[in-house]
Structures are given as structure tokens and as C-alpha cells.
């Protein structure tokens, strides 16, 4: 597995299915159907197109293979990991899963993957009661069990927590739990009221809560020695602009694309604006010819960011702006700097 310098990387989040064995209350999916799902030969064509683009752009690919639940298509998943393992255009890949379907055969198979960086599972709270209220009965136990088996096999595991009003106060306890279970990496995302999660609109953090949460994650992350706390997300630059491991530009339009189960391409999974279909238009047309992508590449088009000194580092989350205001070029509603700018 090769670590990639940020400027050399292009990231694909690849959803190979919409089907899922769980129904998390905050999920960004709207449909859990297999309708439009690509066949294995079509998935292989998708990868050929991705590989062609990576080589033309002289970039190294990083991938997240996910769904839905990717282990719902175990055979196709492994066919793709074999492809990624053998491609010199690929630096590494992660598998984003709920972990419930990972059996002992899977653990062995994953251990043999040459370019698998980590398996990412999700927890929403450090207790079964609170986690399962969001992710479904029994999911806390199955997720930790999957983690423990993956860790016992020497695999790297990350846990993702989607932060909302109901779980923002459990961050510290969550890190303690993950450290006890040997989790390598803790990542957080803000809850965005989209997909099935649109029903939980009041779970979205306020700007003040978001600020407190970002500052808390930063404080915990800097102090933490037991596991790595990822902070390369938009808005973290507001907490510490001088630390290069903190904060990251929204990748929309710059170095990432999401490919859905039917080949539809989005700028980001959380920003479901269709740019085209990878098997019909191809990536070059999508990347070079999308008016949306050209507009979002220009920080002058993003309200609240155009005059901000942090514009090379941040630009907020376009998906959060989209679902909070209906305008993805609006300010990130959680940006406390934008508030002070407009005051």
C-alpha cells in the first residue's frame, strides 16, 4: 500500500450497491433497491474508465468501496478488490461497511488484499442503547465484533461517527470505547438532513453547537495518543489554520468524484447532483464539461467564502449548504467565521 501526497491523489467513492441490511435513521440513501445496479462486467468497465482517467491525469487513485452495504455484493466486491490490487493506478482503497456481514472467511480474504488500507465501520454512540436507536437493534454489538475480528487479523480499522445533536456530547466516551477496542482511526462527519435522514432535520447541529463540537474534536484529537483522530474536513481550519493535519478543502470539483450503483456520477455522495453517467458520458466529459463543477471550482462563486482568508484551506461543506439552504453555493451554515464576516 502506498501513501499518496495530497496533490497526487484523486479519490473515488464507489457505491457498488444501494442495498443494505440496515436502515440507519440518519442515512443519506433514499432507496435501498437493486434497481439499476451494474453487473460485474459493467463494474469492470467502470473501473477501466477510472483507471484511464487516473493515468491521463497522472494521479494515483484512492478508493472507498461502499454501498449500501458492499458485502451484500460480496463476489463483486472481491472481484473489484482484485482489480484494484493489481492496478498500478491505485494507491490504496478502503472498504466502508457496517461490518455486520463480515465473516471469518472475509477477514482472511481482506487480510490478503494488497492495497486495502483500512476497513471503516460506523458507530453513533458509545452505548448499545444510543447507537442502536440510530443504526438498529444489535448493530452496536455486531460492529464492535467485526472490529475485534478485523483487528485480531491485523487489519486497520476506522470508526466513523456522524455527529448530530443527539450524540455530540458522547465524543469523549466514544474515543475511550474505541481505544479499548484497539480501533486505529476515528473519523467524524456532521449530520446532514438528506435522504432518509431528512426526517431527522432537528438533529442537525446549530452553528454554535458545531463550533463547540469542532473545538472539542480538535482538543481531543490533539491530546489523544491511543488512536488517530482525523480532522481533515472543512471547517477544522477555523480551529487551527496553522496545523497542516487539520482541516481540508472540500474535494468537490478538485480531486474527487462519487460513482453510484448505476454509474451515475455525483460531485460527492453527500451532494447528489447528477453530473452524468460514467458508462455513457465517460469521466473526461463529466470532469471537463460540467458547468456545475466549473462554477464550484471558483471560490468567488461561494458566498461567505469568496473574501475569506481561509479560502485556500476550507470553503465549507457544499453538501451542508445545499441541504440547509437549498443553495450549494451558500455559506456553510455551520461556519462561525462567515457569521462574524457578515456581522
Amino acid at each position: 500500500m502506498t501513501e499518496i501526497a495530497p496533490g497526487d491523489e484523486f479519490y473515488f467513492q464507489w457505491h457498488i450497491t444501494e442495498r443494505c441490511n440496515q436502515r440507519c435513521a440518519h442515512c443519506y440513501h433514499e432507496s435501498y433497491s437493486s434497481r439499476g445496479e451494474l453487473t460485474l462486467p459493467e463494474l469492470q468497465d467502470v473501473f477501466a474508465e477510472m483507471e484511464r482517467a487516473l493515468k491521463a491525469w497522472n494521479r494515483i487513485g484512492s478508493f472507498s468501496l461502499t454501498g449500501g452495504e458492499p458485502f451484500m455484493r460480496r463476489d463483486e466486491l472481491y472481484a473489484l478488490t482484485d482489480l484494484l490490487d493489481s492496478s498500478d493506478a491505485v494507491g490504496y482503497y478502503d472498504i466502508l461497511t457496517n461490518g455486520a456481514l463480515i465473516g471469518s472467511d472475509d477477514v482472511g480474504r481482506l487480510r490478503d488484499s494488497a492495497k486495502l488500507r483500512r476497513v471503516q465501520v460506523s458507530l453513533e454512540a458509545p452505548t448499545p442503547q444510543d447507537n442502536d436507536a440510530i443504526r438498529g437493534s444489535g448493530s452496536f454489538a455486531t460492529t464492535l465484533s467485526a472490529n475485534d475480528r478485523l483487528k485480531a487479523a491485523g487489519l486497520e480499522v476506522a470508526v466513523m461517527m456522524t455527529i448530530a445533536r443527539h450524540n455530540k456530547d458522547s465524543l469523549s466516551a466514544m474515543i475511550d470505547l474505541l481505544a479499548e477496542h484497539g480501533v486505529d482511526t476515528f473519523a467524524t462527519e456532521r449530520f446532514i438532513p438528506e435522504g432518509a435522514g431528512a426526517e431527522l432535520g432537528d438533529a442537525m447541529l446549530s452553528s454554535e453547537e458545531a463550533r463547540e463540537t469542532f473545538e472539542l474534536v480538535h482538543r481531543l484529537g490533539v491530546a489523544e495518543r491511543r488512536l488517530r483522530v482525523l480532522m481533515y474536513r472543512p471547517l477544522f481550519a477555523l480551529v487551527d489554520r496553522d496545523d497542516p493535519t487539520v482541516g481540508a478543502m472540500c474535494s468537490v470539483g478538485t480531486n474527487a468524484l462519487t460513482v453510484m450503483h448505476d454509474g451515475t456520477v455525483y460531485p460527492c455522495r453527500r451532494l447528489p447532483i447528477p453530473l452524468g453517467n460514467i458508462l455513457e458520458e465517460g469521466l473526461f466529459k463529466i470532469w471537463y464539461d460540467s458547468e456545475f463543477l466549473w462554477k464550484v471550482r471558483d471560490p468567488g462563486n461561494i458566498q461567505g467564502c469568496r473574501d475569506c482568508v481561509l479560502v485556500p484551506l476550507c470553503r465549507g461543506c457544499r453538501a451542508m449548504a445545499h441541504f440547509a439552504s437549498g443553495d450549494c453555493f451558500a455559506s456553510d451554515p455551520h461556519c462561525w467565521k462567515a457569521e462574524s464576516c457578515s456581522a
Partner: peptide, 18 residues
């Protein structure tokens, strides 16, 4: 396709080869 970047740079892109 011809495009100007946000910084004023000028580009030509080939959709067939990337």
C-alpha cells in the same frame, strides 16, 4: 473544450483522451 480557470489561466481539454 476551452476554459478559463478561476485564476484566469487558459486551458484546452480533450474529452476523448483526458
Amino acid at each position: 473544450r476551452l476554459r478559463r480557470g478561476p485564476d484566469g489561466s487558459c486551458w484546452a481539454f480533450r474529452l476523448d483522451s483526458g
